[in-house]
Amino acid sequence: MPDKRPVLKSIDLSRAWRRVGHEIAEAHPTSDRIILVGIQRGGVALSKQLGKTLADIYGHEIKTGSVEPGLHRDDLSNRAMSKLLPTELPKDIAGQIVILVDDVFYTGRTVRASIDALLGFGRPRCIQLAALIDRGHRELPIRADYIGKNLPTHPEERVEVHTTEEGVPQSVIIQSP
């Protein structure tokens, strides 16, 4: 029976995620080129919520989209093929500031696959990364630009993020094997 324990409170998580929005706005004085792209599936709802925070700060709507990393993974032969979810991007991403959004930042392999998937649609001005949880254990030279919470974990543990339908983070659960 695997041991499941919640580690962060919903109020802390939602505040951290709002803070990430403020950090993005601080780094980008104008918003006209920003596109938030959630990584399927965990990042999509969070990106919508982040979009709301940014819309409040900038005073107008921020474009959001989604990207499916499944076809670009480097471990496709070793696992059953994952369910593919839609890649939906708001418009031509060439020249735009794309901010990838994920729930848990771990080995960096999913982010690498997502970057590859995005580049098939055009050449953004830059790609940044925002994640709610950074659990460490990177396997690629990739770092995040905006982090909600750092969470020390063991590689054998599983980390799950639960959000509301609107993408407000509710809980983070660590599951030990």
Binding site: G70, H72, T87, A117, G120, F121
Partner: peptide, 12 residues
């Protein structure tokens, strides 16, 4: 949807 993109190829 992949077939409808400008770049119709994925590395899967």
């Amino acid at each position: 949807a992949v077939g409808e993109r400008a770049i119709k190829k994925v590395p899967a």
